[in-house]
Every structure is written in C-alpha cells, then in structure tokens.
Design a protein around this nucleic acid. Structure first.
Lengths: 148, 148
DNA sequence: CTGAAAGGTTGAGTTACTGAAGCAATCGTG
DNA sequence: CACGATTGCTTCAGTAACTCAACCTTTCAG
C-alpha cells in the first residue's frame, strides 16, 4: 500500500514462500492443539494473552487487531466455561478487566507446551542452528508489535 | 499426543514463541492483502493452491485439512465471482475439477507479490542473514508436507 | 446385477468476524 | 458545575468458515 519497492529480491520472495508454508503448518497445529482442549484458535489466543495478567477488552481487541464487539463474543464463551472472569475496573467503571482463571491459565500453559511444532520441523535442526534461527527471529521481531 | 518428550529445551521453546508471533503477523498481513482484493483468507488459500493447476475438491480439502463440505462453500463463492470454474472430470464423473480462471490466477499472483511481510520484519535482516534464514527454513520444511 | 464405497452437495448448527447503533461512565470546556 | 463529546463495551444484523450427518450420483467389486 505505501512505498512500492518494485523488484523484491529472489531471496526475500523465497523466504516469504517458505514462511507461508511454515505459517500454514504452525497454524494447523495450533488449531489442533486448541481443539484437543475444546478451545477454538481465537479463544486460545485470548487466553494466551491473558497469561500476562488481566487486561481490558479494548486492549485485547487492539492486540489481535479486530473489532471490540468480536472480543465480547469470544470472552462470553470463555467466561461461560469458567476460563476467564470479567470484572469492572474500579479506576474506570466503563472498563471490564478480563482475567484468566486458574483453569484458564492452566489450559493455556498446557497448550503452549503441547505444541508439537517444537519437535517436528524444528527437530530437523541441530542445537546450533536452532540458536541461529532464534537470533534471526529475534531480530526480525524486535521492530514489530509485541503481540501474543 | 504421541511420544511425550518431557523437557523441551529452552531454545526450542523460545523459537516456538517467536514463531508464534511471526505467524500472527504474517497471518494478519495475509488476511489484509486478501481483503484488499475482496477475498477472504480461505478463498485466497484455495486460489493459491489452484495456481498449480486444476484439482478435485477432494484434494483441496485434504491439503487444507478440512471437510469437503467446507470447500463446496468456498468454491461456490469463488465461482460466483468468476475466479474459478468447476468442471466434471471426464475420467470419473463423480469428480469436479476446480480450475482458476485468468482473473483468479492474476489476483492470486498479485496478492502473493503484494505481501508486505517481505519488507517489514524481513527488512531488519541484511542480505546475508536472509540467506541464512532461507536455508534454515528450507531444512525445517524439507521433511514436512509440501502444502500451499 | 447388486451392494458397498467414493466424490460432492445440502442442511443444521456453531464460531468468528464486521459494522452500525446503543448505553453507561468519563472527560473537557465554558 | 453542567452539558456535549468521547470512550469502553454490548447488542444486533449479516456474512464467511467450519463441522457433522444425511443424501445423491457415479464407480467398483463380487
């Protein structure tokens, strides 16, 4: 949309494609791992966010870049199942602070640790390479939004 | 689900987390790029698959690991907008071969090339590092399913 | 030829999502 | 201090994606 850098070098293009595959695989595994705990992907994402502590709906919506009304529904369903609670912020009673319950946090942590991804494609790399990869990813993400 | 490797070393865990962030960013950009062409993410994925040539619905469903009935709907909407066609396979008339039209292919190629991702997080790496990253990703994906 | 299996579609039901409208609490300014 | 604008969240359509079960149609096996 903004500055149009016409050529896009071949390496970048290939990395983008590889990344797309990786994203596909990762995504599928994430959904499966969530489903195994009868969570949807969206619910799991919200729960993961809440591992950092209670936060206003607004903040959740911004972080996941979606409409607040969307979060209302997701939190509704999480709340109905006892994974999160909604409490009015005493500081500003317009704000609802969403917090993960013990069960919610546990499910999220468990999910995170169950990600097979860690063992499948990643297993193809030896420890040294994994560190290399980590460093590259760190640098790439240093500038980006600090999300999920 | 299968063999439980208890400890999961710290580097792997961190890589998984970084990857999760990356996946989030990439995913968001993909959706946006698709939306900019008034496609949904799912539609864009199917269209991307069809760049390789016509294929039966069954095959699409398997590749995207979802129910065939799901694909019916997505292809319906793509067809309604002239991005794909459905034709009976002369070899086996149960099979419907879905093929991207010129418009469909064009949209898909354009979308692929518009992925900003190439310039945002990736721009933080210098050419040498990008090659390093490419090689690592290649190795990781060598064993995996050859998807989208 | 007949019954089982495979490819797709249909229909019901859930979730995720958007956008507009609405309500309540808060803030800014005269 | 009061009043209008703004902010945070919910509610209400409306659409897309998805699952599952039931259902045709074509193919295949015996």
């Amino acid at each position: 949309m903004e500055t149009q850098q016409p050529p896009t070098d071949p390496v970048t293009l290939e990395v983008t494609d590889l990344m797309a595959n990786l994203v596909g695989i990762f995504h599928r595994e994430y959904e499966e791992a969530a489903a195994a705990r009868s969570l949807t992907g969206a619910q799991a994402k919200v729960l993961a966010l809440l591992r950092r502590g209670p936060m206003p709906m607004r903040h959740i919506a911004q972080t996941l870049s979606c409409e607040p009304s969307n979060i209302t529904g997701i939190v509704d369903r999480l709340e109905a199942r006892g994974f999160v609670t909604r409490e009015a912020d005493p500081q500003d009673r317009r704000v609802k602070l969403v917090a993960a319950t013990g069960t919610g946090t546990a499910a999220s942590v468990e999910l995170r640790e169950s990600l097979h991804f860690a063992r499948e494609p990643l297993a193809a790399l030896d420890p040294e390479e994994r560190i290399q990869l980590r460093d590259l990813l760190r640098r790439m993400l240093a500038g980006a939004v600090p999300p999920a």
